[in-house]
Amino acid sequence: MLIETLSVFPEMFEPVMSTSILGRARKAGLFDFKAYNLRDWTHDRHRTVDDEPYGGGQGMLMKVEPIAEAIEAISSEGPKPTVVFFTPCGEPFTQHVAERLLKSERLLFVCSRYEGVDERAYAYADERLSIGDYVLTGGELPAMVVADAVVRLIPGALGDEMSNVDESFSTAEDGGLLEYAQYTRPAEFNGEGVPPVLVSGDHAKVDAWRRKNAIERTCRWRPDLIETARLTPEERAYAQDILDASYSQSKE
């Protein structure tokens, strides 16, 4: 996989793309990375990438011409990339979207700044994504977030191929639930101990506890996920009992 970024601050990416899991995966040849400077596709001495919006308003808007020229030039070499823009109008980024992007041989993240981009630039978008309902100063951080989520799904990136299966939001065996609670040494801290089942040595009981705990935690912290989670009829009834009890307590 080739991951590329188009930005006015290309230097932001290298520390992230060469560190920890991403760095090891890149060094192992599991993916390659290139960062492009959008200003390389400008044609004035000031290397201008923004201008005032038609109709007035606050801030500056990124011009369509440099973006279009850059995407066309980058796309002309090698396989056509999946071009990803970040915008509040985009599809919410989820684990499912990360798994979809993983199928791309080449990803090009277009990182906007200022008040956004000229609407006509979106004609080049294959994907429009949003990582949340809040305002950032640019698209570089969202690009890093998405790149991290995608790279760790590449076979071999984590070393342990099962590491992706047992995590929150995975669409694999956990059915879209939050991950169960986990503990390590010491066995007791500030008067709180580790659940006895986890030190029982009974793997069947441990698995059952983890599944039940994942349902409980999802009901408590992300009840919106329960509706689409893959649960047995018994598990769904258990989850509903928890949700009903929580609703009753909130009314008291």
Rank of each mutant, 00 (worst) to 15 (best):
L38I: 09
P53E: 13
A125L: 07
E91G: 00
T232V: 01
R45C: 01
D244M: 04
A239Y: 08
M144L: 15
D166M: 10
L102R: 09
T171Q: 14
E4F: 11
L198E: 13
V165M: 13
D244S: 08
W41H: 12
S104Y: 03
R217H: 06
R45T: 11
D148H: 07
Q95W: 09
L231Y: 13
T218W: 07
G23I: 00
F9G: 09
M144V: 12
V145F: 04
R39N: 03
F85H: 13
V97I: 12
G56V: 09
G59A: 07
K63Y: 02
A35Y: 11
L243V: 11
G191Y: 09
Q58V: 12
S7I: 10
M60K: 09
G59F: 06
A172F: 14
A98F: 00
S20D: 08
D40H: 12
P223L: 05
G193P: 00
R113I: 06
A208C: 02
T137E: 10
E77F: 08
D118W: 01
A121P: 00
A237W: 01
G191L: 10
G56F: 11
V150D: 11
A68S: 15
I154W: 02
D160Q: 10
V150M: 02
D207A: 15
F109P: 00
E69G: 00
V206A: 08
L108N: 03
V84I: 13
F85Y: 14
A149K: 05
D51A: 08
A123E: 15
S75W: 07
G56E: 12
G191H: 10
F13A: 05
P88G: 09
R128V: 08
N190E: 14
T232D: 02
L61C: 11
F169C: 07
T82C: 14
V135A: 00
Y238D: 12
R152M: 02
C111T: 06
L108P: 00
L38C: 03
M144W: 11
